[in-house]
Design a protein around this nucleic acid. Structure first.
Length: 426
RNA sequence: CGGGAUGUAGCGCAGCCUGGUAGCGCACCUGUUUUGGGUACAGGGGGUCGGAGGUUCGAAUCCUCUCGUCCCGACCA
């Protein structure tokens, strides 16, 4: 992509309304535009990251047999009346009527809708288990939206719903999802800590939250420092849930089973939450399936969320410096930024740009006639992991690669530079 | 919803107290200049000051109402 034709409204000024660093950087890097309180448009740079996150989530879930669907954002109120949550959910749920005066809601979550689908088609234990998911927009009319996309009213969420014949099966599915979450966050280049959580209004008796560590996180976490010493083979629900890890509201120093010196406390941002809640909805909404003995049962359900737009903010909170964003290479909007410092070198720069594209590397090419200072600072601000800088050394066919995270610079030939980028992303 | 701020050009701000029809920086346009960290100079376009009402010869400035946005709290992915 040539910067000259890319919508990237970067700004030097800190927006007055944005307080936390991720919100500021998202606005300054031209990622989002606020249309009204808690409601944002996602501009091209942000959209590219969303696509990466979408793809990683889809890969991770399809791998364990989940099936992607898309449910409506707008739902009939009748389903909520059936489940009994119409009154319970409160003012957070946006309610309105269509032209026939039929009550509708803009879905804050989709347990009711997915149960409505499942009860229509899943009639036998032979069709179980099933895990359906979507990556879609939700709306919760927060009392006070804040922190940019971290706590918006409209947000993109991956929500999955599982149906099992038995409780034992459902707990197995839960564990599968738990492990898939670890896999997914790893594919995103993130370290997360799974906490034992309070199931809250969704109900049920088994629930975990997944937090990204960041100093500006909204909750204080208490956990066993063993989390920092885990080997890849330890990254399973079975192993992890043996370690102490809870949010502050669940933390009880007297019940805490580990010695004080091993107890770590850091702030975290919740990016995922999973629940097992049994037949709460299948019962209230009368979903009946026949089990292997021919008896009617209410299937056992779980639901599993990942806040996709929230992840944008969480990633930036945990990965930035004074210059701007530093994208983990797994989710970067472009793999490499190409800066041409002099008009004279345009032919060579174009050539390198096309080489990169030929090697299927995504590149944001600054082909503008801005001053060098602005080119450097824009590239640092938007945080692509690698920058290739074309300066006077191009006369000897040499370019410079800068690694955004460390600031290290390497001089090499154009051919080697392409190879370097390829290897970096292998 | 309680408490606190704020609304002047795309963004960040000054002007308001002590009424006299708007200014700065960045961004934008034109030209020259510069070329390894937001280069410099010159010229230029853009706002009737969130909205409504009032006081006054005259309101961005004073008064009333209203809307938006942000921060703290309760609440949350």
């Amino acid at each position: 992509m040539r910067l000259s034709s890319f919508l990237l409204p970067v700004s030097k000024n800190n927006p007055q309304d944005a307080q936390i660093v991720s919100h500021r950087l998202m606005i300054r890097a031209g990622m989002i535009y606020q249309n009204t309180s808690g409601i944002y448009s996602y501009l091209p740079l942000a959209q590219r990251v969303i696509q990466k996150l979408d793809h990683i989530i889809e890969t991770g879930l399809n791998k364990i047999g989940c099936q992607r669907i898309t449910m409506p954002t707008i739902q009939p109120a009748s389903l909520w009346i059936e489940s009994g949550r119409y009154g319970d959910y409160g003012k957070e749920m946006l309610k309105f009527e269509d032209r026939h005066d039929r009550p509708l809601v803009y879905g804050p979550t989709h347990e009711e809708v997915v149960t409505d689908i499942a009860r229509a088609y899943i009639k036998s234990y032979r069709q179980l288990p099933k895990i359906l998911y979507q990556i879609h927009w939700k709306f919760r009319d927060e009392i006070r939206p804040r922190f940019g996309v971290m706590r918006g009213r409209e947000f993109l969420m991956k929500d999955a719903y599982s149906f099992d014949e038995t409780e034992q099966g459902a707990r197995h599915t839960y564990e599968k999802m738990f492990n898939a979450y670890l896999d997914i966050f790893k594919m995103m280049g993130l370290n997360v800590i799974p906490l034992k959580a309070d199931p809250g209004p969704i109900g049920g008796d088994l629930s975990h939250e997944f937090h990204v560590l960041a100093d500006t996180g909204e909750s204080e976490l208490y956990y066993d420092e063993a989390f920092h010493e885990l080997q890849p083979q330890d990254m399973t629900m079975e192993k992890l849930t043996q370690l102490y890890a809870v949010a502050d509201d669940q933390h009880d120093p007297y019940q805490c089973s580990i010695p004080k010196e091993r107890l770590k406390s850091r702030r975290g941002i919740e990016v995922g939450h999973i629940f097992y809640f049994g037949d709460k909805y299948t019962k209230s909404m009368n979903m009946i399936t026949v089990n292997s003995k021919g008896e009617p049962i209410h299937p056992q359900m779980g639901s599993y969320g990942i806040g996709v737009t929230r992840l944008l903010g969480a990633i930036i909170e945990s990965s930035h410096d004074a210059q701007g964003i530093i994208w983990p290479k797994e989710v970067t909007p472009f793999q490499v930024g190409l800066i041409n410092l002099k008009e004279d070198h345009k032919v060579k720069a174009d050539e390198l740009y096309h080489h990169l594209l030929d090697h299927h590397l995504s590149c944001l090419y600054d082909d503008t006639d801005e001053g060098i200072g602005k080119k450097f600072s824009t590239m640092d601000l938007i945080g692509l992991p690698l920058q290739i800088i074309i300066g006077d050394r191009i006369q000897e066919n040499l370019v410079e690669i800068k690694i955004r995270h460390t600031g290290d610079r390497h001089i090499m030939s154009m051919t080697d530079a392409v190879k370097f980028v390829e290897d970096f992303y292998m």
